[in-house]
């Protein structure tokens, strides 16, 4: 599943990022395989998404989130 499928409050581990579609800046902010991610809050229509990636609190758009593969870890 991808980051875009995560429910509010759910946590997961990033398994793969498609480096062509993801801006380097996001990788540099900690969005890398192996790091944990939590969906803190979503705006209407689940876009943008407010995430806690490895301790960095940031918001990205859904169109970016679909390129990040994850595995859920709770619930």
């Amino acid at each position: 599943m991808t980051l875009a499928d995560l429910k509010r409050g759910q946590q997961g581990i990033i398994t793969d990022v498609s480096s062509i579609h993801i801006p380097l800046k996001l990788l540099e902010m900690g969005c890398l395989p192996g790091n944990s991610v939590e969906l803190v809050q979503v705006a209407p229509f689940a876009d943008p998404m407010y995430l806690n990636i490895n301790g960095s609190h940031l918001a990205i758009r859904k169109e970016t989130a679909i390129h990040i593969q994850i595995e859920t870890t709770n619930e």
């Binding site: 801006p23 800046k25 996001l26 902010m29 943008p48 407010y50 960095s56 609190h57 940031l58 918001a59 990205i60 758009r61 970016t64």
Partner: peptide, 10 residues
Amino acid sequence: SKTFFIVEMP
């Protein structure tokens, strides 16, 4: 132009 959006929540 490429659009992408990342904003930090301090």
